[in-house]
């Protein structure tokens, strides 16, 4: 067997992203939102993505479905999906993939639902065979929405944020049972018990049909429960990738470390939470390490040169000082 690396994963490869770069055209010029992003995903593997707001997580997911905003452009990279070159596919073929093999749970449920159509009708738009009452019950029950069975004629505004989010999870995950599920902060509007139910459901889907997932969240507890490997993004780049356990036990990138220190459970009640000084603004355009302006251990080299990825075993880190004993 060939040696495995961070960017590669074991046999049963489903997705391979290489050097992906996406820019947005804005009034003030082009914004490089995603740069040099590479990762692989095996069937049945769950890849967690965390990182600063605006670091490009949603852009990566939408690029994978080729549903980027009109002002966005993929400027380089390759996306291999089960042997096909996704970026070369024609739109009808891509649409078929989105129909049953690649599912997306979008970040803002309210904006993905039509406000003037009953939720029952919208469920039927997305899924065939829903007239079978047993199937509907199974679908809603899976996300703890059994109670909505008698309210399907209601419109989105009649439901709570978490109820709508769960409807979209039911459609994308349980309804389509895709080979690749892209979940963009799917549990942020859910309480802990319902969240645990959704996480169990996704893990069960992975075990039963072998779905692979990219799971974006800001919740470090959630990401540690769901992920096999975790990628940390900062200013458009994947700055660290590591197996879940390892990332928490021994974070290597200074941004990852700062992230772990900012969580409230590491503080006494009422004491100000630790934050990361400075801002990410403008970091996408720096020629050196994008974290250098905020990094407590930055060297001159960091400001001048963007660190190349260093791979060790299943991990990857982009930091000039990663090898040092600090």
């Amino acid at each position: 067997m060939a040696a495995m690396t961070a960017a590669q994963s074991p046999a049963g490869q489903l997705l391979s992203v290489r050097d992906l770069a996406v820019v947005f055209r804005t009034r003030t010029g082009e914004v490089p939102a995603v740069r040099e992003v590479s990762f692989d995903l095996a069937r049945g593997e769950i890849f967690g993505l965390v990182g600063e707001s605006g670091s490009g997580k949603s852009t990566v997911l939408t690029a994978l479905t080729r549903m980027l905003a009109r002002n966005a452009r993929i400027t380089s990279g390759r996306i291999g999906f089960d042997g096909a070159d996704l970026l070369a596919l024609r739109e009808p073929a891509m649409r078929r993939l989105r129909g049953d093999r690649i599912g997306l749970i979008p970040q803002r449920p309210m904006t993905s639902l039509s406000p003037a159509t009953s939720i029952g009708r919208q469920l039927r738009w997305h899924l065939d065979g829903l007239d079978d009452a047993g199937r509907l019950k199974e679908l809603l029950g899976g996300v703890g929405l059994d109670a909505l069975l008698d309210r399907l004629d209601g419109y989105p505004f009649e439901f709570s944020g978490g109820q709508l989010q769960r409807l979209l999870i039911a459609v994308a995950a349980l309804g389509k049972q895709p080979d690749l599920l892209l979940a963009d902060e799917p549990t942020t509007t859910l309480d802990a018990t319902v969240q645990a139910q959704v996480l169990r459901l996704l893990l069960e889907l992975r075990d039963r049909v072998g779905s692979a997932m990219v799971f974006v969240t800001h919740d470090l507890g959630v990401i540690s429960q769901i992920s096999d490997r975790i990628g940390v993004m900062y200013a458009g780049r994947l700055v660290e990738v590591a197996p879940a356990r390892e990332l928490f036990a021994a974070p290597r990138h200074p941004y990852t470390r700062a992230l772990l220190e900012a969580i409230p459970v590491r503080h006494r009640r009422g004491e100000p939470l630790r934050t990361i000084p400075g801002t990410v603004t403008g970091a996408n355009r720096l020629s050196g390490c994008p974290f250098a302006p905020r990094c407590p251990i930055a060297l001159d080299l960091c400001r001048e040169e963007n660190p190349a990825p260093r791979e060790t075993g299943l991990s990857l880190v982009r930091c000039h000082r990663a090898g040092e004993d600090l």
Binding site: D191, A192, T193, Q195, A196, Q197, L199, R200, L203, D219, L220, G221, V222, S224, Q225, I226, A244, R245, F248, A249, L260, I263, V265
Partner: peptide, 15 residues
Amino acid sequence: AAVPGIGSREPAPLL
């Protein structure tokens, strides 16, 4: 009990 702890590896059991 269902609040996921950092570094925990399994979601809480269902009600």
